[in-house]
Amino acid sequence: MLVIRRRPGEILVIAEDIEVEILEASSSYVKLGIRAPKSVVVMRKEIHVTRQQNLEAAQEISPAGVERLAESLKNALSGPIRPL
């Protein structure tokens, strides 16, 4: 991993047309400003991960598969299962 030290107001450039500016920094967070072409998708990593996971979760599961899943869940869980 490339590690660069930057101060607020300083910028770094990725490829030809992506700029990342340090807007604000404190001991617990940094605020970044990102300038990139519209075609470049920028998102928080946890949203990207959730997106991938949702695409996988949307894969069809057969009715028998769902029954197996419910069964294995019941067996794996301790304590009573309350309705919603």
Binding site: V66, E67, A70, L73, K74, L77, I81, P83, L84
Partner: peptide, 10 residues
């Protein structure tokens, strides 16, 4: 959609 026989899956 809730199906009692498949709880806790919804």
């Amino acid at each position: 959609v809730e199906r009692p026989d498949l709880a806790p899956v919804v």
